[in-house]
Design a protein around this nucleic acid. Structure first.
Length: 760
RNA sequence: GCGCGUAUAGCUCAGCGGUUAGAGCGUCCGUUUCACAUACGGAAGGCCGUUGGUUCAAAUCCAACUACGCGCACCA
């Protein structure tokens, strides 16, 4: 054995050995492995590169899987990748942009070809990177959310909800990214704090007659100074073009007498009413607010109650559109804002400007400011699904670790709006909706307000009908829209096992035991998996949700490639070895919600590897040096005899180390059961370095120079302790433990520590 | 505005009711002879965020405050 441990020489070799054994696949395990233990790898995006978050979660899951496998469970860790709709489409679009072409130049089919090519070339890189970390994923079951079978599952789920009456189509105010040209769900927005302004705009009151004109001297109320204007405050002056009312709080004394009157909307000639609604916060601005039903959710709500007009003035490109006055039409939002403010200024209607901190909703994939725009979309009713998802956790069928994340989960679900499922991008699962070409035309010519269900011009079916059920003659056209990428992710625990087919895998491995996930996708992903699992399999897809900490920089800042604050785990593997990286990461998982990343712990891991290596070298040397009798060299024999302690005359040092070892086993089990990965790592480190190396090995040197009996007994304790420790450490540091195990003089040359028995 | 989390050595973190508060890294001093200099021996370095409370006893439990991080809402 070399004097130092060299991960480069062993990791590749050992990984190949594991893959060759086939034991990543639980079906290949011996029959004695009975109970299953399943974890689904959160499928990384095909656009993804391994970052510290992946490395952390990979380490956690691999620890759990290897721990359970060595304990005798049929452990399955199922890998796969997510097609990541918008994210992937954007990456390919960016590539095309370099060549000066847009997706529209190519057309849908050609563009999708490009995406598939891209997927073929780069799609599996990230999975290969997981191998470098030593992940014991069952590669034979690798799934992809755009596989043919997976597609079937997605369509089936859509159809199921539709038939239940939970999916409906409708024109709603939705989040719209004008760059991606698609709708977005609420969870796909990222709010960014920015300095903005609050503009106070005066809306002139309609003066019906001379008598009512407060400035007319014939008016008896002249001296009361009845205002001629009502001022509204807004951060979005350009939306005033679509105002259809001014609203005040009904209890606001300042405005009580104005309710029911009308104002002239400046820059347009429209008269709009002043209404009272308790949704208006009297403390905001002047207490009077403009109401733009087409471009604000709360205004939309108000408009329904008061039967207000609904005027869309911003289009899908983010430009002003009719019925806004002609001079503004076609202007981009910020240009329109500038012009409108200028025009108001000229009219003397701009009362004042205040600084205002706002958080702007941005597209989570391209950072364009997201607009609220009315648009025809498909929605999934959430009330029942949310209820079911809440109950699953309330009843303890799904448990969160740490528990306080349940609070945010409940909070989101109990206020959730219907899920906007449709996206206007191309890369994704096309809706199984088929339109009658003829009827579609007719309906397009009708005003959206009169549309109703009797006007249905589509069917929702698994396969395109041979004959159009409406006109009997057109070849039906499939909807061009695709599903939200998270709709398919929500089915991950089912579809990756073959659902909707009743597969053996589904029977054997559903539900899984643990979902290990980052906290930012608890609602986006975990919640949706929970209700999907219950809906389709009657059982939640996992029993425990472990919310792992977030890796941030040493300064506490978010790790981000674009900010240059990211750390590449593969560089670290290259530098220190996979075991050291895994050790360093697990060492820091102490239960806090963030981990400030420091390389120190990985260096510690590297040194630890070397310590283990040399201690093993010492033990092996002692066995070789003091052969007692042929046949006893096998460590199985030596180690085995320690368990029958009666025959041994143990010294105080022997007893002490065996006791400490026993304590370590118990504490590791307890820690792993409670996701205390850091504590477990600390315990292993301290036991080995201090109890075993500093104390016992030093003592053993003395004992080994004693009589033969003492020698042999010391050898046994040494090998037993080393072997037991290696097993305990294997989930954490799989490579070095396997490598040393392979060097032990064992009877069964093919034995692997990966499937050894767990010490008890 | 509401909620969650964190504050201990220069740095990253343990300890979570009971002797002189610990580890790794960093710093300083010393040691190469037989497992390991990626090691070993030793040293310096802490009003355990602030203020109150509970207790025989508080870094540890409770409350308030301050600072930082995160999430949600508002942004009409």
């Amino acid at each position: 054995m070399a004097k130092t441990y060299d991960p480069k020489k062993t990791e590749k070799k050992i990984y190949a050995l594991w893959e060759k054994s086939g034991f990543f696949n639980p079906d290949k395990l011996a029959k004695s492995y009975k109970k299953s233990f399943t974890i689904f790898l959160p499928p990384p995006n095909i656009t993804g590169e391994l970052h510290m978050g992946h490395a952390l979660n990979a380490a956690i899951q691999d620890i759990l899987i290897r721990w359970k496998k060595i304990q005798g469970y049929k452990a399955l860790w199922l890998p796969g990748i997510d097609h990541a709709g918008i994210a992937t489409q954007n990456v390919v679009e960016k590539q095309l942009k370099k060549q000066g072409i847009s997706r529209f130049d190519l057309g849908r089919e050609k563009f999708l070809e490009k995406v598939w090519q891209w997927k073929k070339k780069y799609g599996n890189i990230i999975l290969e990177q997981f191998k470098k970390l030593g992940c014991s994923l069952d590669w034979s079951r690798t799934a992809f959310t755009m596989d043919k079978d997976y597609y079937q599952a997605v369509i089936k789920a859509f159809l199921h909800y539709y038939e239940k009456g939970w999916i409906y189509q409708g024109k709603r105010v939705v989040n719209w990214c004008s760059r991606c040209q698609t709708s977005l769900s609420d969870l796909e927005l990222e709010y960014k704090k920015e300095k903005g302004h609050l503009w106070y705009i005066k809306y002139p009151l309609v003066q019906k007659s001379k008598f009512q004109n407060p400035n007319s001297k014939q008016n008896p109320n002249y001296k009361l100074q009845i205002p001629r204007f009502i001022a509204v405050a807004t951060t979005r002056p350009e939306t005033m073009l679509g105002d259809t009312a001014v609203a005040v709080n009904p209890n606001d004394e300042r405005y009580k007498k104005l309710v029911g009157q009308k104002v002239i909307l400046p820059l347009t000639k429209r008269e709009v009413p002043i209404i009272a609604d308790k949704l208006v916060d009297p403390k905001f601005g002047t207490g009077a607010v403009k109401v733009t039903p087409a471009h604000s959710l709360i205004d939309y709500e108000i408009s329904l109650k008061h039967d207000l007009l609904f005027l869309q003035v911003i289009d899908g490109q983010g430009r002003i559109m009719p019925p806004a006055p002609f001079i503004y039409q076609g202007l981009r939002i910020f240009d329109a804002r500038k012009k409108i403010l200028g025009d108001l200024e000229k009219l003397g209607l701009l009362e004042k400007i205040e600084d205002y901190d706002l958080s702007l909703p941005k597209c989570y994939r391209c950072e364009t400011i997201v607009e609220l725009i009315p648009s025809e979309q498909w929605f999934l009713k959430m009330n029942e699904l949310a209820r079911v998802a809440i109950n699953a956790v309330k009843q303890g069928k799904v448990k969160f670790y740490p528990k306080n994340f349940e609070k945010g989960y409940f909070g989101w679900l109990s206020n959730v709006r219907d899920w906007c499922l449709s996206r206007q991008i191309w890369w994704g699962h096309q809706l199984p909706v088929f339109y009658c070409g003829k009827k579609q035309e007719e309906i397009r010519n009708q005003k959206s307000e009169i549309r109703n269900n009797n006007n249905r011009n589509f069917v929702v079916v698994l396969k395109k009908p041979k004959k159009c059920p409406f006109c009997k003659e057109c070849s039906m056209k499939q909807s061009e829209e695709v599903l939200d990428t998270w709709f398919s992710s929500a089915l991950w625990p089912l579809a990756s096992l073959g659902w909707p087919k009743k597969t053996r895998d589904l029977k054997n491995f559903y539900p899984s035991n643990i979902l290990s996930t980052a906290r930012d996708i608890i609602n986006l992903w975990a919640a949706r998996m929970i209700f999907s699992g219950i809906e389709f399999m009657k059982k939640p897809p996992f029993k425990n949700v472990y919310v792992h900490p977030t890796v941030v920089t040493k300064e506490g800042k978010r790790m981000s490639k674009s900010l240059g604050t990211g750390v590449d785990p593969l560089n670290l593997v290259e530098k220190y070895g996979a075991d050291a990286v895994r050790f360093g990461i697990s060492y820091q998982i102490m239960g806090s919600q963030d981990i400030r990343f420091t390389e120190d712990n990985i260096i510690m891991g590297k040194k630890f590897c070397n310590k283990i290596w040399n201690a093993a070298r010492f033990v092996l040397l002692q066995i070789g040096k003091f052969k007692i009798s042929p046949g006893q060299v096998f460590f199985e024999n030596l180690a085995g005899q320690v368990n029958q302690k009666s025959k041994l005359q143990l010294t105080a040092a022997d007893k002490k180390i065996l006791k400490a070892l026993d304590k370590t086993i118990k504490s590791i089990n307890k820690d792993l059961e409670n996701f205390r990965f850091g504590q477990a790592t600390h315990t292993l480190y301290n036991f080995f370095w201090h109890d075993f190396c500093d104390i016992y090995i030093e003592k053993s040197k003395n004992q080994l120079s004693g009589n033969n009996k003492r020698k042999s007994q010391t050898q046994k304790v040494l090998i037993y302790t080393l072997l037991t420790f290696l097993k305990l450490l294997h989930p954490f540091m799989p490579f070095i433990t396997e490598e040393i195990y392979q060097k032990l003089p064992k009877k069964n040359k093919k034995a692997l520590i990966m499937i050894e028995s767990w010490p008890s």
